[in-house]
Design a protein around this nucleic acid. Structure first.
Lengths: 243, 243
DNA sequence: CATTGGGGATTTGTCAGACATTTGAACGTA
DNA sequence: TACGTTCAAATGTCTGACAAATCCCCAATG
């Protein structure tokens, strides 16, 4: 029953140890040297390193070397209350900035019109932006709103980085709740591009539908978070005991 | 500004397409053949495939071939109410079974005693088990409880697969709430072993501290979920506008 | 002296080919 | 039929090589 571990598996364990022990930002030995130390070929070593790179634990640069990307400060937030990353960051004294930002004019797709309870093809605004922390992209946010909720002029003149904060300020009727769905997904191509990661890397995804006090949906958003930078928590109540 | 994409990046995109389009469970062409089709060497192809394998999208077997692991049915649960996976699964008509199960007798570590508000070294019981769905491991659960909450005899005789359900049944005083922390992490070695994945693969982690009606913590648990099998949602309320 | 422009060394990126190991199926034999 | 052998196919690993990017030192130049 002593299952033999393959060279690759053994190597991956050793690599994980090495990476965890290595100081953040430090440079790893060169591939030929490391392969010799680990007792494997360079090809096998590279296969193993790819997985760590795809998980954002390693950065490689041709002609330079391979570097350990250390764990960084995490954004810790309670999920019961809906607040923007910007507001949260300010509250806990964390510095975040907005990276790439764009908004486009669209006609509601089938999914969007369904979620927002509007007619197919109704005008909507799509807002996309990247959240940066310490000059690294950590989140990618996409909001879709009916145009009657947020017109382009208001967006252009009063947007400060957070759609949610803007909606809270100008919302009429005011906002009340959101239904948020939490999952882990593999990065779609456009998100991977924006966050400068590999397509297929794993992300924490919060899909939220935002309602005003009349119960009308006003915003359908996707928030893609880089794992490791965020810790979300929630108070849960014991449910009905069906047994 | 037209950034050149490396062979590897192009290959990964093509592979992602191929995998998404391929029927679930289908067999991929052999590595030499696929490498020729993609116009890359076998070594490069293998590097790219490793990342998909480490994310559970591919299964490879020496002497047999490489297979696409299709997206499977997801477990969809609201987070406001705390209920066991078993109860949830039963409610929505999903078949889950218990894989490996073990419990051990320990003395509380610093972290555990801190979380459970007991003395360092106090006797605790640690319960570990694997949740299976369609014969695949999908979650790994670890519960730590003070022995005065759950004694070994009760555990041995009345455990049906869920510590939470057991605590709800025998809890005295009854359970009330839990504080749950949601994050995405890279699989520690013992979890990777239990779930039959690679160390370092990304997992959804729910860390929960369970309280009874007296406000005493009675259970400190870690739930490791395989991404893709779970979708969790929550209703959030608009917070105070600090501005 | 400050700046620029070459080498050259180092490192990662990619490739070609080879052999080892595992598996499954076909085949032959008792 | 049942069982063991053989063999082809597929992944696992290794070796060696060259290409491309980067960095650093140093000489030439103003």
């Amino acid at each position: 029953m002593t299952e033999e571990r393959s060279t690759y598996q053994r190597l991956q364990t050793e690599l994980a140890d090495l990476i965890q022990k290595a100081p953040k930002g430090s440079k790893l030995p060169s591939e030929p040297l490391l392969a010799e130390q680990m007792g494997v070929s360079r090809a096998t070593l590279r296969e193993a390193m790819r997985t760590f790179e795809s998980q954002g634990m390693l950065k490689r640069q041709q002609g330079v070397g391979t570097f350990v990307v250390g764990p960084t400060q995490v954004i810790d937030s309670g999920l019961e209350v809906l607040e923007s990353i910007e507001t949260l960051a300010e509250r806990i004294g964390l510095e975040v900035t907005m990276g790439h930002f764009e908004f486009t004019h669209l006609q509601a797709s089938a999914r969007q019109s369904n979620k927002l309870v509007i007619a197919l093809g109704d005008p909507v605004i799509e807002v996309r932006r990247v959240i940066m922390m310490h000059d690294s992209p950590v989140a990618y946010l996409v909001d879709v709103l009916p145009e009657h909720v947020l017109d382009p002029e208001t967006l252009a003149t009063r947007f400060t980085g957070s759609v949610l904060d803007l909606l809270i300020t100008i919302g009429d009727p005011p906002l009340s709740t959101s239904k948020t769905e939490i999952s882990a997904i593999h990065a779609p191509v456009e998100v991977a591009k924006a966050l400068n990661i590999q397509r297929g890397d794993t992300l924490l995804l919060l899909r939220a539908l935002l309602f005003n006090e009349s119960g009308d949906p006003v915003d359908y958003s996707h928030s893609y978070f880089l794992p490791g930078y965020f810790r979300l928590h929630i108070i849960r109540k014991i449910g009905g005991v069906t047994t």
